[in-house]
Design a protein around this nucleic acid. Structure first.
Length: 113
DNA sequence: AGTAAGGCGGGCA
DNA sequence: GTGCCCGCCTTAC
């Protein structure tokens, strides 16, 4: 009780927290989509906001946000570098087909329930 | 304090 | 496959 958290400045902290929480849940060799994360948190339309949460958060370095891809299978964007993202995924065993993930739907991390 | 623009997307035409 | 619009969050002016 010595330190007081200044969460008052960011009411949406909950949102970011949820995203990071789910992102961290992803295992190696598996990927997820922004929509799934948004849907898992109750806001399927906030897919964009999900990406923002990962991007904005400094936890970007401790969260496998690179394992999150678009629902189309394309890597999407990446603040640290589009190429970098693919590189990391490939290193995890994920195959790529051009600009899209191979067997994308097969390695998709399913939250559901 | 309010408004405008940007962003790692998704869905539809 | 491409293009446009929408909806959600954050940041800047």
């Amino acid at each position: 009780m010595s330190k007081k958290r200044k969460i008052s400045s960011r009411p949406s902290v909950n949102f970011d927290r949820q995203v990071l929480r789910l992102a961290e849940r992803i295992t190696v060799g598996r990927v997820t989509t922004y929509k799934m994360l948004a849907r898992a948190m109750g806001i399927p339309k906030a897919s964009r906001a999900v990406g923002n949460a990962l991007n904005r958060n400094k936890k970007l370095l401790i969260i496998p946000c690179h394992r999150v891809v678009k629902s189309d299978g394309s890597v999407g964007g990446y603040r640290l570098g589009y190429k970098k993202k693919i590189c990391l995924l490939k290193k995890e065993g994920i195959k790529f087909e051009g600009k899209k993930v191979k067997n994308f739907s097969d390695i998709l991390f399913n939250y559901e329930k």
